[in-house]
Simulated assay, not measured.
Amino acid sequence: MSTTAAPQPWSPPRPVSSRRTWSLVALGAGWWQLVALGVLYVVCVRTAAGQRHENRLHDVALENRGSETGWLRTAFDLVDRLQPHHLVLGVGVVGLVGLVRGRLGAAARGVVVAGGTLAVTELLKLVLLERPALLEHGSAANSLPSGHTSAVLGLALGLLVAGPRWLRAPLALAGAAAAGAMGAFVIADGWHRVSDVLASALVGSIVLCLVHVLPTRDQRRRGALVRLSLLVPGAAAAALVVVYAGGADLTTSYLLAGAVVALTVLTAALALPREVRSRG
């Protein structure tokens, strides 16, 4: 029987130049979003006008803290009980999903995305970035990006990377709902400002793009990755215009920020490479 009778999805091998082009696109997508993250930080945190817009909504959220009832209060209480060991368990589940499938590379990339999203967030928030005192009522500790949002977003993206292609749609929908809800919750309960959550969306997208700089035998889609790198910063910028320049209320603001986080998960699912099966 001829070995060429049934073409395989991985054949013919991609040339080195094609792999190099993919890596450059992934690297460029990550760096471009890093620039967008820097602009977000400078505009919202390093200017008096930005801090004034930030504090307007944050003060309202702090005044309303604890006033939620019913299922919303239950959800806030659940979020409040999340601990670091829950994240460690979640990252372990991401790796286990890839290993059970026999996809060591996917398991490793999923773990890097899940853990790396939070690690980069904490590095930025606690070490590299600061919130200067530009207004009369004083300064606060830097809160950009949001650690809780990045934790859930990272796990959602990690599961997409490590999980099988046939599960991507339900995983993307569930991950978008969970990460988007977390982003909305931390703003509504006064834990974070809008820009903190938008920054988390950018961090998750950046880590995902940079992880895909690594070589893989899967069928990669440069256009989808570029679309991810454009949509997430664009959505974040649009949300800022509506929330701060447009003077949106607290409910509109946290719903918009949560929607940007959810969009990050959904767009990332479409940007992932198509897996190919091994020979034999």
Rank of each mutant, 00 (worst) to 15 (best):
Q8G: 12
P9Y: 11
S11N: 14
P13Q: 08
W22F: 14
V25E: 00
A26L: 02
L27W: 01
L27S: 04
A29C: 14
W32H: 00
L34F: 07
L34Q: 00
V35R: 00
A36V: 01
G38A: 12
C44W: 00
V45S: 11
V60Y: 01
V60P: 00
E63C: 00
E68T: 11
R73D: 14
D80K: 12
Q83W: 13
Q83F: 11
L87P: 00
L89Y: 04
L96P: 02
V100T: 12
R103G: 13
G105V: 07
A108G: 13
V111R: 08
V112W: 03
V113E: 04
A114E: 05
K125I: 13
K125S: 10
K125R: 13
V127N: 05
L128N: 01
L129K: 02
L129P: 02
R131D: 06
R131I: 11
P132V: 12
A133V: 11
G138V: 05
P145F: 10
G147L: 09
T149Y: 05
S150M: 10
L153R: 03
L157T: 08
G163I: 07
G163E: 06
R165I: 13
L167A: 15
P170D: 05
A176Q: 02
A178Y: 01
G180L: 07
M182L: 09
G183R: 01
A184Q: 01
I187M: 07
G190V: 10
W191E: 13
W191V: 11
H192V: 05
V194F: 11
S200Q: 05
I206M: 05
C209T: 02
V211D: 06
V213T: 09
D218L: 12
A224R: 12
L225W: 03
V226Q: 01
L231G: 00
G234M: 06
A239E: 04
V243M: 10
A245Q: 12
G246F: 11
L250F: 04
S253A: 15
S253L: 10
G258F: 05
V261L: 07
A262E: 04
L266V: 11
T267I: 09
T267R: 12
A269P: 01
R279G: 08
